[in-house]
Design a protein around this nucleic acid. Structure first.
Lengths: 317, 317
DNA sequence: CAGCTTCATAGCAAAATGCTATAATCGCTA
DNA sequence: TAGCGATTATAGCATTTTGCTATGAAGCTG
């Protein structure tokens, strides 16, 4: 580091000043380095100081160490102030892809120094990831089965599922689609482990059918949307996810009321985990953006003319 | 560095072993680092050791320092053994482009760890570069004017100039071209400062003309060759340079004997400069390759049916 | 809960590192 | 080339850091 500083500054005294040290200290340690190497590192008595080839080469590595060292102190200071750092976020795939990824982008605009590490998983995986401290926060839908006292759960969006179809789907032309109509079309099943899977079975029950015509399952959100848009298939999706996709105008809500899960999307974190300022800021950001989003989503929901099998499943107010 | 090693190895003891230290030393310094930072860097009591986000981030920089440090020791060891290092070579443009650049390539095949830094210059520039220790060796043509006792000059190729023209040049059809024939064509002048410029004037004198028809001057070798190949112009070039270009079959030797300079291409270096093994190896390589080349060049020279203004300038034996 | 492994802490010696003060050297100019 | 101004090397000393061995504490495993 001293070699690099000295060569960059053009002299021992200047280099020492650059490092906040005295000239003598730098002079000695460089002499010792030369002695250890057994070769001169620079040519004495020249202004500006000339390095030997070996000196030049070593200075390259010294510069690397110097910058790494500076970055390390920056990382620590940023971490303590919360202006930089790292958040490891795990979440359920669909929400991450549709909503959280955009929030990460907007978060990065505000806090460019904070690294966000995203990972996917369903509730059990995310809980064990939290336990193993592999992630700092999880963004998951949680129902009545609370995960226990070791966790904090911050509610950010009520769960609300809808039936999704492509824009221009034949069923959209009917004023009041019936359950039997829905059963006539192929369905997309969510990934195993997804809460949407149980939701789908709930719907089956409520409709009174024993089985749906599952034609596709197991894809990411992008795959599902692509499939939906290019076919007449139907899928159960969170309304907020569809809301996030409204700009594309490829998929939309089928106005058919279905039983709603008693579930909320929220931020899950361990109470005992050392909460870093970066994670704190990210959580606040997500909560704020979802808070802003909630009203817009609500308006869009109310704009749908719902129809359903009976009055047992009205849209939430 | 210790943090990185410990996290990579998966434990304090393993990390210490990786660094060739005892476990206790590493344990203590990491504790001190944690105290300094004021935050835990890893979660105690977990196998394999889990880092906090800050620990992970700092480890990144630690790894950078670790690799830089390793590379530095490699650089030193390589320098001492001569298997790695850096040579700064300066040379006259035409020889560098035609011959030395290829030798640098073949040298790099043998010694991939040695960096070669090439620069251009004519004799005076190269001497001052040597004095300023900006280059380690110079590859220059030197005549009777020896540069002085502070330098070592190793002869590698006798100077031998020829008139060059494109293949298919009209003059090639004549069995014995005369001086007046040559004067009828445009000429390419070498860059100012090049020894070839004085050579060209020598030729003028010997031919008995006061001036040649200079149509182009000041280009690099590639420019000169391109110009030669696409015109009927003539140029004075070292035979070895033309030899190196024989594969392209674009330019060739005009069999017209011209006065030869009392000059040799050779390696110039300061006697007092700290001679690195890398520079030593490079010099040896250049000398060896030129040594091999010399005989081939000689054969090609002898194959030319020379003709000239008189017997004063016969081809060298 | 014993046994094994791993990590943290003491205690001590050696080395490295820092400073101030001072000598030696170098480059430049008159 | 002598001298000046600036820069670099060395001395001497105090402090900190670093290393080791030995030993205690804590965690997993069967």
């Amino acid at each position: 580091m001293q070699l690099a500083a000295v060569l960059d500054a053009g002299g021992v005294s200047e280099g020492a000043a650059l490092l906040g040290m005295t000239q003598s200290a730098v002079s000695r340690s460089l002499s010792m380095l030369e002695a250890r190497v057994g070769e001169p590192l620079f040519l004495r008595g020249r202004r500006p100081l000339q390095a030997t080839t070996l000196g030049t080469q070593l200075a390259v590595h010294g510069r690397a160490i110097l910058t790494a060292s500076r970055r390390a102190t920056d990382a620590v200071q940023g971490h303590l102030k919360g202006t930089s750092g790292m958040v490891r976020v795990g979440g359920v795939p669909f929400f991450m892809d549709a909503l959280v990824s955009q929030m990460i982008a907007s978060f990065h605009r505000d806090e460019p120094e904070i690294t966000v590490q995203q990972s996917y998983g369903n509730l059990p995986d995310l809980v064990s990831s939290l336990d193993a401290r592999l992630i700092d926060i999880g963004i998951v839908p949680i129902g009545s089965a609370h995960p226990g006292g070791a966790y904090e759960f911050i509610d950010i969006l009520p769960g609300r599922n809808v039936v999704a179809c492509r824009t221009g789907h034949p069923l959209l032309k009917r004023p009041h689609p019936q359950a039997t109509d829905l059963a006539a079309f192929p369905w997309i099943a969510p990934l195993p482990g997804s809460p949407l899977l149980t939701d789908l079975q709930m719907i089956l029950l409520s409709i009174g059918l024993s089985e749906l015509n599952i034609r596709y399952s197991g894809g990411s959100l992008m795959s599902v949307v692509n499939f939906l848009a290019d076919s007449d298939a139907l899928a159960v999706l969170p309304f907020s996810v569809l809301f996030a996709l409204r700009k594309d105008n490829r998929v939309t809500v089928l106005p058919f009321a279905i039983p709603q899960p008693d579930r909320s999307l929220g931020i899950l974190r361990r109470l005992d985990s050392p909460r870093s300022p970066a994670a704190e800021r990210f959580s606040q950001h997500v909560i704020r953006v979802f808070g802003d989003l909630k009203h817009t989503i609500q308006r869009h929901e109310n704009a749908v003319a719902w129809a359903g099998p009976d009055e047992a499943f009205p849209p939430r107010p």
